[in-house]
Write a protein that binds this DNA or RNA. Structure first.
Lengths: 357, 357
DNA sequence: CTGTTAGCGCATTCAC
DNA sequence: GTGAATGCGCTAACAG
């Protein structure tokens, strides 16, 4: 325990805001040089046990925290990951949280923080993040097929990882769910349950127009599986918002799907309304037909009755993205050669599919 | 347009990573001193029109961005707001996004960024944010009645705003929905619709145990309104997760509510299951009884049938919090004297309440 | 193993 | 209205 003498009394010249504790203060208290304090903290050179102990005691005593700005300035590393998230108007904000959460957790595990930027800033947000050295790397979500931000992202001075697969990734690493496989798994399951006709409810027009390309990738996987199994597959118009939309969609499903159709609803927004309308007509999913949703497990369980689903695996996708990101940051670690990394979905049987034959 | 001569050719000694453009580079190109560049950007002293033009042209030409770390170091301001969000296990993560989004928008409007910290770091996260000078102010969400972080937050070197009202705010500014008023509004409406008995479905045990105190505040408001109107008010056990939970809750509602009860469901998770169970029993909300939810408008509209609700107003709450925050940061602006700011909810009539008499 | 030193890029004080 | 000079707190190269 160090005793503070009268010498350490100082006039407050700082407007009442207490002066920050610096590594020099720690050095003085520990009786070492300032750089030694730095090396104790970074572990970038060996320190004798005795010195380390004294420095650590001083750090503790003064409750020293390194200044992030100064550290970033000197080391050229911010220890911050920029995260570009979709902004609501038009974006599928549902199920966004698990991504954010997982990304934040992975960042913290590697002693990094997460700076949030909303997508409405567009390319300007990316330029700001990199230009001002606000972060060491960027994760971009909600990638469109023809995303105008990608050419910009590719020229930034920091690595960028995409969650989503654009038409041209411009050399950037991408991580996403394996949507073709997801489509295949849904149709495989329906075929195995004995359905000879499968109806796929389309995605909302706004999503398609925005060019979110998992739509096409999912449908292609479903189509392929259908021809492989020799089952008929029809794609019907998407569910418009509101009760009427669900009515119209179910109408079409029944028209083209005939009796006992297998139904695929790749849209968590529409799931509950569609289930509701079906049941209102006396058609019980799990008894009179099978329905498989494409959504997170949470959404599948929140719905009545709990829906059999192919999961979106937001945590797996995010974790993989962060893994690649830190491989890119740590010189020495090799990122994967394959730029596009697809995460396998998982099918969970719940109450909306017929029992296995 | 400046022409670069052979003099500006330099060997790359920087491992391929291009050197960053600094305000000195801008100064050289514009033929002014570095400090002039700084003053042009900050506007903290008057600059002749000609000089300003040349500097701005140089900034444009070099695509100069100020280095955030250096700026923070020199100015003691990071232009970053720390945001502490709840971490999933046990927290009501539903409807979190509108808060985050609004906070991010308000921050950007004031040329600030948002650094995300998850609540699982507890007080350590707060100490890190302030200690490392990662941000100029902190917004904390999901405040518990007896939140251990609050005494810590109160001693930080940066202002902290709470979204939520703890038992002891320790001198910190708080913003939250006016939950007593929300409870009152729900019961007022049910009374006006002619219901003589009101049943309030309790909050989930986990929420109550965590000490999220809006539970009690809401119920107290409801109780007061009930006695004012002379209607009976019963609080029944909360809806356990899953179908069975909703069954049990509805059972109790009907037991104590009698015929044509007015029901209040202050829990968006439980809303759909409860509606479902009621309808399965042939009791149609909006026809045979009235049901009012406490949830966001989005949640009320997502449910079948669309629910009359008292809104949580996440955007209003967030906006108010950010307004106070910037008042605290801008010396000169006076924050409100009243530390606790309550935002009035809004009741929207939808399909689950009886038509007005 | 440890200390000394030189910047990192910017805001700001002083001098003119 | 402008420039020169200083220092924010830290990392890392250099010198023992």
């Amino acid at each position: 325990m160090t005793t503070f003498t009268a010498l350490s009394i100082r006039i407050d010249t700082n407007g009442g805001r207490r002066r920050m504790v610096t590594s020099r203060d720690v050095a003085r208290v520990a009786g070492v040089s300032q750089s030694t304090v730095s090396y104790v903290m970074s572990g970038r050179r060996s320190i004798s046990a005795a010195t380390r102990r004294r420095v650590e005691a001083a750090i503790e005593e003064l409750t020293y925290h390194p200044n992030a700005g100064a550290r970033a300035l000197a080391s050229q590393r911010t220890q911050v990951i920029g995260l570009v998230v979709p902004f609501t108007p038009g974006a599928d904000t549902t199920g966004l949280l698990p991504f954010i959460e997982t990304i934040a957790s992975c960042a913290r595990e590697a002693d990094h923080d997460v700076l949030l930027v909303t997508a409405n800033e567009g390319s300007a947000g990316l330029k700001r993040l990199a230009g001002r050295s606000l972060c060491d790397a960027i994760v971009m979500m909600d990638i469109e097929t023809d995303d105008a931000r990608i050419p910009v992202a590719a020229t930034l001075s920091v690595p960028v990882i995409l969650i989503g697969v654009p038409a041209d990734n411009a050399g950037l690493h991408c991580v996403d769910l394996d949507f073709p496989l997801a489509g295949r798994m849904a149709v495989d399951e329906l075929a195995a349950l004995g359905h000879r006709r499968v109806v796929l409810v389309g995605h909302p027009a706004e999503v398609v127009e925005r060019g979110v390309n998992f739509v096409g990738r999912f449908e292609r996987g479903a189509t392929d599986a259908a021809s492989a199994h020799g089952v008929a597959l029809e794609v019907v118009a998407p569910v418009a918002p509101g009760r009427d939309g669900a009515e119209a969609a179910v109408e079409q499903v029944l028209a083209v799907g005939g009796e006992r159709p297998g139904v695929v609803v790749p849209n968590s927004q529409a799931l509950q309304p569609v289930l509701q309308v079906l049941m209102d007509r006396g058609l019980h999913p799990g008894r009179d037909l099978s329905l498989i949703a494409l959504c997170t497990d949470a959404a599948a369980e929140a719905v009545t009755p709990a829906a059999t689903n192919v999961s979106l695996e937001p945590r797996d996708v995010s974790r993989r993205a962060m893994q690649i990101l830190f491989q890119l940051l740590d010189r020495g670690q090799e990122p994967p050669d394959e730029l596009v990394q697809l995460i396998p979905p998982r099918l969970t049987r719940r109450r909306t599919t017929l029992p296995s034959p």
